[in-house]
Design a protein around this nucleic acid. Structure first.
Length: 478
RNA sequence: GGUCUCGUAGUAUAACGGUUAGUACAACGGGUUUUCAUCCCGUCAACGCGGGUUCGACUCCCGCCGAGAUCACCA
């Protein structure tokens, strides 16, 4: 069975740059009826951020990346917080001590710095294994524990990067257990992956360089290597560095709050650096699970492009309406309406949504784009007078046009989109005006917004009373 | 500096020895009775450089250049 894991450290929110190492393990596990484990790597107490674990869980839940073992759901390989597994690491550490593959290192940090400096001056690579203490004491908490490597070459296969090899020069005596008794990442993840039965270790490429050291530990511990998968970085919009919080990488949930749909987010992120070889762009989660494959994960970094994310979000907004109806989209719009919408019925809001949704890039666009449906807009005659189609028309003509329109609509019996369009067409013929002129005037008078849906639809939703009231108000103001 | 990885349009990518180098986003132009958007049509735009191998190279080999990663008691 395939077992994958997402193992973040709780140092803050999950952002665009690192969420892919949760998505791919998820897809792989689901595709193969496997399991995904969520493990919290909180061995660095200095960097621990209160509430970060909840932020991580929240992000995964929103994206629909549920885990089979881990916090909240539990499981038979717990605990899933490394801080609660100290004894387990010590146990494994003692195995290495017993076989002579680990030693306590009482060397003070200042001394180590000195060694490092010496090497730098002599322009030779600094390897701690050349400075091993001669008679290491018996290990006890309070003293760091180091791995005792046997320098040699390694070969391995990375599911994304391909066949890899390294020479003995990259191997060193890395710290296994820190002075404070907590394990380093380098040791803890190996122990945990082994104990939890993880078959695919997926993580960012930054770990590629240390892989030989991990290989040496697997070997010393007599463990079978899991499959190793290096995921390329997501690059910041500018420069060539990986996207990080310093580049203003937004948290994933911030996009949710800005009205990006989880489907779009998942779709975009999954396809950034992976494709199935077809020209498909829009994928549901089920399709991603079905089509995902590690060997088609790109091995170079991919630049994050918010414009494309937003395009994809628009695609998803329309797709949801097309496939599930406006109500389905409406159910996700709770926090995105202008304040004035609260005094209107849900039915009315759904009608507004049904004529505006194809203009949305994010759900939060609703706030600005629908204001005039819920409260009368402030009359701004400049918008009419300066309009490119209307500016050469004298004010008296604008007024009479509005009045003709009011008369026509007042006598209209059926207030529906088709009848309204017919009435507008009649009006066009009767006034002998171009659509650009007549429709611009009415559109602005009703909304005073930079843009709005088709005129007949807008009037239909606004209703007869509001439409006529607004036209009258403008006719008086001109 | 050592070691490792990567290199197709502005961006994300397809191709896996033979194509007018395909697609999408962006940009630009046009169409759909007003606007904005959707939708549709079109335009611009790429194989980092230099050597090989081959009848033929984006594809294979070598060198160079460029970019990134890593060398912590951080993960």
């Amino acid at each position: 069975m395939i077992v994958t894991r997402f193992a973040p450290s709780p140092t803050g929110y999950i952002h665009i740059g690192n969420v892919r190492s949760a998505i791919y393990p998820y897809l792989l596990a689901r595709q193969n009826d496997g399991k995904m484990i969520l493990r919290i790597e909180d061995t660095d107490r200095a960097r621990y951020v209160e509430g970060a674990t909840e932020l991580i869980e929240d992000t995964l839940e929103w994206l629909g990346l549920n885990w089979d073992e881990g916090p909240i759901v539990g499981g038979s390989h717990g605990p899933y917080f490394q801080s609660e597994r100290k004894e387990i690491y010590h146990e494994w550490a003692r195995k290495l001590i017993a076989t002579g593959r680990a030693y306590a290192d009482p060397t003070p940090p200042e001394k180590i710095d000195e060694y490092r400096k010496q090497c730098n001056e002599q322009k030779i690579p600094f390897l701690y294994r050349n400075f091993r203490p001669e008679n290491p004491p018996e290990w006890q908490p309070g003293t760091p524990l180091r791995f005792k490597v046997e320098p040699k070459s390694y070969q391995w296969h990375d599911e994304v990067m391909g066949d890899m090899h390294s020479g003995p020069e990259v191997l060193d005596d890395i710290i296994l257990i820190k002075k404070d008794g907590f394990p380093t990442y380098n040791f803890a993840h190996i122990v945990d992956d082994a104990e939890m039965g993880v078959t695919h270790v997926m993580r960012g490429v930054e770990y590629l360089s240390s892989t030989p050291n991990y290989l040496a530990i697997y070997e010393a511990l007599g463990l079978t290597r899991p499959k190793l998968v290096s995921l390329p970085h997501i690059l910041a919009p500018t420069g060539n560095k990986k996207l990080g919080k310093r580049d203003g990488a937004k948290s994933v949930t911030e996009y949710r709050d800005d009205g990006v749909l989880a489907e779009a987010m998942l779709n975009y992120l999954a396809c950034l650096g992976w494709n199935d070889g077809t020209e498909q762009e829009i994928y549901t989660k089920a399709e991603l699970i079905k089509n995902f494959s590690l060997d088609r994960v790109q091995n170079s970094g991919a630049r994050y492009d918010e414009t494309k994310l937003l395009w994809m979000n628009g695609q998803w907004i329309r797709r949801i309406v097309d496939e599930q109806g406006v109500e389905a989209l409406y159910s996700r719009t709770d926090n995105f309406w202008p304040a004035s919408a609260a005094s209107h019925s849900q039915e009315y809001r759904i009608k507004v949504l049904s004529i505006i949704y194809d203009r949305l890039k994010t759900l939060s666009d609703l706030r600005e784009m629908t204001a005039y449906f819920f409260s009368d807009p402030e009359i701004n005659t400049d918008m009419i007078i300066n309009n490119k189609f209307l500016k050469k028309m004298p004010e008296s003509e604008l007024e009479s046009l509005l009045k003709e329109c009011i008369a026509k609509l007042t006598n209209l019996n059926n207030w529906d989109a088709d009848s309204l369009q017919a009435a507008l067409n009649d009006l066009l013929a009767e006034t002998n005006k171009k659509p650009a002129e007549l429709f611009s005037l009415i559109r602005i008078a009703l909304s005073f917004a930079p843009f709005s849906p088709a005129l007949n639809l807008t009037m239909d939703v606004l209703g007869k009373d509001t439409t006529l009231a607004r036209l009258n108000a403008v006719a008086r103001a001109i």
